[in-house]
Structure formats: C-alpha cells, structure tokens
Amino acid sequence: MKFVQSLRIISLISFFGLMISLLVWILIAEHSENFPVAAWLIIGVVPLLFPMRGILYGKTYTHAWASFLMLFYIAHGIGELYSRDAVIWYPLLEVIFSSSFFVAANLYVRASAKLRKKSQT
C-alpha cells in the first residue's frame, strides 16, 4: 500500500513539475518571433490539462493513457536537447519529468492492479 502511494506521489510531482517547467519555458525563455506564445501554450500545456483530474484523483486508467501522452514530451525534449546550442535546462527538465512520470505511472497502474487483485481474494 505504501509503495503504491509513493508511486502516485512521484507521478504527481513529475506531472506538475513537467507542467510548471513547460509554463516557465514558454512564458519566460526567449523564443523566435515567428511563433506566438499562445500557440506554444496551446500545443505544449493544453494536452496536460485533459488527464489532470484523473491523475489528481488517482485513477489508474488515466495514469495509463497519460503515460502514453508523455511519450510526446519525451520525444520533444530529446529533439530540443539535440538541436539546442544555448540553454538546455528546459528540455532537460522536460525529459526528466516526462520520463519519471512515464515510469511511475506505469508502475502505479501495475502495483494498484496487484493490490486490487490481492484484496479481492
């Protein structure tokens, strides 16, 4: 039970860490003038709003499909790390938070399923 709760806490910290780091990256860091900030917010942050309620309530189904959403952020962060010359902190945080959410959410789904199966017997 304690292991499941710690996995849930790790996934929550990773999810909101990713959201906050993306917001800081989009709103504070320098960008090219060709792409408006509102478009960056819609593309980068709005997809994270869809699973937020289920993640806050600890729904295993939401954790499962939100972990697949993190694959987009992992790929984006790796692409930005590869192509950036200047500041690498924002894409590095994106890769770290999205990867840790991916792992913690998958382990949370697995552990809570085992716990549920054990309690039914």
Rank of each mutant, 00 (worst) to 15 (best):
M1F: 07
M1G: 14
M1N: 08
M1Y: 09
K2E: 10
K2G: 06
F3L: 14
Q5D: 08
S6F: 03
S6G: 00
S6T: 02
R8G: 10
I9V: 07
I9D: 00
S11W: 00
S11V: 00
L12F: 04
L12N: 03
L12R: 01
I13S: 05
G17Y: 06
G17C: 06
M19Y: 08
I20T: 06
I20Y: 03
S21H: 04
S21I: 07
L23P: 01
L23W: 07
L23Q: 04
W25G: 01
W25T: 02
W25D: 01
A29M: 09
A29P: 00
H31P: 05
S32T: 10
S32N: 12
E33L: 13
N34G: 10
F35G: 06
V37C: 08
L41S: 00
L41N: 00
L41P: 00
I42W: 01
I42A: 09
G44L: 07
V46T: 04
L48C: 07
F50E: 12
F50L: 15
P51F: 05
M52L: 15
G54A: 14
I55G: 07
I55E: 07
Y57H: 14
G58S: 13
G58C: 15
K59T: 09
K59H: 12
T60G: 11
Y61G: 11
T62I: 15
T62S: 14
A64F: 13
A64E: 11
W65T: 07
W65V: 10
W65E: 12
W65Y: 15
S67T: 11
S67L: 06
S67Y: 05
S67Q: 03
L69I: 08
M70I: 09
M70A: 03
F72G: 14
Y73T: 11
Y73L: 12
Y73A: 09
I74H: 09
I74P: 05
H76W: 14
H76F: 14
G77R: 06
I78P: 03
I78L: 15
E80M: 15
L81K: 08
Y82S: 13
D85T: 14
A86R: 09
V87W: 05
W89D: 08
W89Q: 11
Y90V: 06
Y90N: 04
P91L: 13
P91A: 11
P91H: 09
L92C: 09
L92H: 04
L92F: 10
L93K: 02
E94K: 08
V95H: 03
I96P: 04
I96H: 02
F97I: 07
F97G: 02
F97Y: 02
S99E: 09
S99M: 07
S99T: 12
V103N: 03
A105N: 03
L107V: 06
L107P: 11
Y108H: 13
Y108V: 10
Y108S: 11
V109D: 01
R110V: 08
A111T: 12
A111Y: 14
L115N: 11
L115H: 14
L115Y: 10
R116N: 07
K118G: 01
S119H: 08
S119W: 07
S119F: 03
S119Q: 11
